[in-house]
Amino acid sequence: MRLPPHIGEGITQTLIMRTKRLLPALALALMPANVIAAPAAPPPPPGVAACTGCHPKSGGDAAIPQLAGHSADDIIAAMKAFRSGTRPATVMDRIAKGFSDDEIRVIAAWYAAQK
């Protein structure tokens, strides 16, 4: 039995697991490695990291909607309207002004591809 590779020397006698936590962990551990080490999804483009703090992955409401699943055209149109001030906003007007057409397009395409 070997320790996880990221746990360094000197830790052997000090590792703790809560037993109830260990059982599901072991069950998962015994699955084929490729189940756990699934290939990573394409990383979100720069800018998306700023959206996800407020716009939830799922759910949301009219004021702060979920973005995933909206068409790219809808997202682009909304961002441009916020940027130009034609769509009233509390904060998105100030944020949208920091993004170029190209950046908006890439972010919108990424969100449109999410389920």
């Binding site: 996880p4 746990i7 590792l15 697991m17 936590r21 962990a25 756990i36």
Partner: peptide, 14 residues
């Protein structure tokens, strides 16, 4: 050390 499923315990058995 609380081990995550795909973390410590999983890596141990890989």
């Amino acid at each position: 050390i609380l081990g995550g499923a795909a973390g410590a315990a999983a890596a141990t058995l890989w």
